[in-house]
Design a protein around this nucleic acid. Structure first.
Lengths: 204, 204
DNA sequence: AGCATATATTAACAATTGTTCATATATAAT
DNA sequence: ATTATATATGAACAATTGTTAATATATGCT
């Protein structure tokens, strides 16, 4: 029977590989570099994974695990409440947390690097990230419009307009962090975005 | 003396290399692939460029050539006029043109692919793209505020909020075009962005 | 203890990489 | 036409790539 330490080695490989894929990209993160970073020889990797791509797929499968635990009842309740702006702040704050989470940051970097060379990641980005978020946000804006909290407009457009600056901010922060540059100024922009956006859509 | 055809070969190399860098990324676009695509042997490349990096640098230098021919007088005039929204439409339309331009699209793809692995490109993105656009937009919004056309707010924030959806849209379009997917729906979003944004900032 | 399994190592492989060198061919100037 | 220069080729190089095979070592079970 396999021993329990296996899980540890397999996980250590995934951790090292994730770090190297994020820093160097898939092609530049060679099997030998990954193995060395784990502390074993390259051939030993093949006891745990079929091949290099297999390692990558294990990591890539984490990329689009829903970032938000979206509670539909809760969000509808807030959207109908007399403080619907709070939901937008909650959304932006979760986005901010993910942006500054070391693990999610690595996954984001891998996604961005391989996005243009990997059809699966492109589909994942469009479906699991973009479409999913729009489908969460649009009905909420729709509810807010019905309740008269927010000016009437196309909910899909409003959702996209709300989402895009958050994504851009995440990209910006991630780039600065690669070079260990300060991100304090950008950190507060997540809240500023919500405030600015709310001023543009609120009624009364 | 060198013949005039040299310029042609050198340019053909740059064109082939640009296409391959955009499709495969720097590492995967090998010298042999580039040479084959030009129709010569790999060693012949070295008569025109010092090495592979030299080819890349020639192409990379084009990435941040100011996309907009920004005429400050004109933009201030429009911002002060009674139709300041027109300037935003002009800006977005130029952005849209660039997005759908085949050459600029390749350069954009190269930028995005190498952004996370090339400090020069990161600096270029932050300074030549982000900061430059903010520095163009912020004073214009400031003028609009002074003229009472636009609600009072932080011009830098407003500039960023206007820019981010355009960038996100460009990314979205570029990804779809890689897989030859339809972008007609997204095409009209550039104008929708301006309309939505304007509704959120206009006074009266 | 002995056996089976899991996991490591060492060595080798074929392929691909960027680059260089010697040499051939084409082009332009005298 | 001869010469000089520019540009091409073919072959070779050392390094690195992903992967496999043979083999050793460690671990867990009976």
């Amino acid at each position: 029977m396999p021993q329990n330490r296996d899980k540890t080695t397999k996980q250590r490989i995934l951790e090292s590989a994730m770090k190297l894929f994020a820093e160097l990209g898939y092609k530049n993160a060679s099997v030998r570099k990954i193995a060395k970073s784990v502390g074993i020889r390259e051939s030993a990797l093949y006891n745990h994974f079929k091949n290099k791509e297999d390692i990558f797929l294990h990591i890539a499968s984490e990329i689009f695990t829903t970032p938000f635990n979206h509670d539909e009842n809760m969000s509808t309740t807030i959207a109908k409440s007399n403080n619907p702006k709070a939901y937008l702040h909650k959304f932006a704050t979760e986005f901010k947390l993910i942006t500054f989470d070391k693990n999610k940051e690595n996954l984001f970097r891998i996604m961005m690097i391989e996005l243009f060379q990997n059809k699966n990641l492109r589909d994942g980005f469009l479906n699991e990230f973009h479409n999913k978020n729009i489908k969460i946000l649009a009905p909420i804006f729709f509810t807010m419009m019905q309740e008269g909290h927010v000016r009437s407009s196309d909910p899909m457009v409003m959702a996209q307009e709300f989402l895009a600056p958050l994504f851009y901010l995440r990209l910006h922060v991630t780039l600065l962090r690669i070079d260990s540059q300060a991100t304090t100024a950008l950190s507060s922009q997540f809240e500023k975005h919500v405030d600015f956006f709310w001023e543009g859509i609120k009624v009364g």
